[in-house]
């Protein structure tokens, strides 16, 4: 089969690069700023700004529930959203392996464009390079985003004992979806990544009563709570029976020996809220598509550690994840 592929020429800056940018990138990302194809994008913003950047190297690039295209847009937009910003402008840069299939690249770009439309962020600049396929056989994407601040949700000093901890969705789906895709686990029903737009949650809730938030990506909910407790003199007390998680995700985690709290998410924010407003915030989160399974899972307490009351009433420390997750043997 004669399949169109990426060649080194697509990264050379000549006609092939130009055609790729015009026919694939500009074609899919609507917006006059990008279409101008200047060396810089001119943007006009007022007020305090949030700025975030992230690189995406996920393998496989197509996974159950998503792909690297939408992930690269949601990922940076989610960082802006949980920081209390409205996502406004995004850069989108591709590093492509020589020989990469053009149809797959198109799928990725289209999916990124769809995600950007959903969030309401405009892609205004970017770059394309081609590398030898020995270095990577899947695309690498970098995105950087700018947002206008609605509230500061990164201020540790606001967190006080008694505040409530809300998870905006069920946990561990992205990590387990990637793991099962990578290991070609033949599961009856594949676990879908939770990759999605967290800004939709803050659009609904506003910022009233929300003191702090962070998205629980690599290292999962456990890493986020440990990072926060390292910065404050208090800690977290969680209730296992309140933690939202799909049953098939529980079983796969148990089978592989993973604690779901340390598994990656791409559509879960940890929100710390004033106790008396927590239920109201939760009700609003649950009205969104992303937040249907949200739950108040615990509270900030005086002791500087992260513990969880188990379903049988025992108490245990929640581990800080270390290194890559390694499956157990028996």
């Amino acid at each position: 089969m004669n399949m169109k592929k990426i060649t080194m020429a697509h990264g050379s800056g000549g006609k092939a690069t130009n055609d790729l940018i015009k026919n694939l990138i500009v074609e899919n990302f609507s917006g006059s700023i990008l279409g101008n194809l200047g060396d810089s994008a001119y943007i006009n913003l007022c007020g305090d700004l949030a700025f975030s950047s992230d690189s995406f190297v996920v393998q496989p690039e197509f996974f159950p529930g998503g792909d690297i295209g939408e992930l690269s847009v949601y990922g940076t937009c989610n960082d802006l959203a949980v920081s209390g910003a409205v996502p406004m402008y995004l850069s989108f840069s591709l590093i492509l392996p020589n020989g990469y299939i053009m149809d797959d690249l198109e799928k990725i770009v289209k999916s990124a464009a769809k995600a950007a439309d959903e969030v309401g962020i405009e892609v205004v600049c970017g770059d394309t390079k081609v590398i030898n396929s020995h270095s990577s056989n899947t695309p690498i994407i970098n995105t950087a985003g700018i947002g206008v601040m609605g509230a500061s949700l990164n201020d540790y000093s606001k967190i006080k004992p008694g505040d409530k901890v809300i998870l905006t969705s069920d946990i561990a789906r992205h990590g387990m979806a990637i793991f099962s895709a990578r290991k070609e686990l033949e599961l009856e029903n594949s676990i879908q990544s939770d990759c999605g737009n967290l800004y939709s949650i803050f659009e609904k809730t506003g910022y009233d009563g929300i003191k702090f938030s962070r998205d629980a990506t690599r290292g999962g909910v456990a890493a986020v709570l440990h990072e926060i407790s390292d910065k404050i003199s208090a800690g977290f007390y969680l209730y296992e029976n309140m933690i939202p998680i799909q049953e098939d995700v529980v079983y796969l985690c148990e089978f592989l020996g993973f604690d779901p709290l340390v598994v990656a998410n791409e559509g879960v924010a940890v929100i710390i809220s004033e106790a008396k407003k927590a239920q109201k915030i939760l009700n609003k989160i649950r009205q969104t598509k992303m937040g249907r399974n949200a739950s108040i899972v615990g509270e900030v307490y005086e002791t500087n550690n992260v513990v969880m009351e188990t379903k049988i009433g025992g108490v245990r420390t929640v581990e800080m994840p270390s290194g890559d997750l390694l499956p157990r043997i028996c």
């Binding site: 188990t310 025992g314 245990r316």
Partner: peptide, 16 residues
């Protein structure tokens, strides 16, 4: 059994 060791910790069995 290592799986028992982990289950005992994960469910906080010692503490009850």
């Amino acid at each position: 059994c290592g799986t028992h060791t982990v289950s005992i910790f994960r469910y906080g069995i010692r503490s009850v």
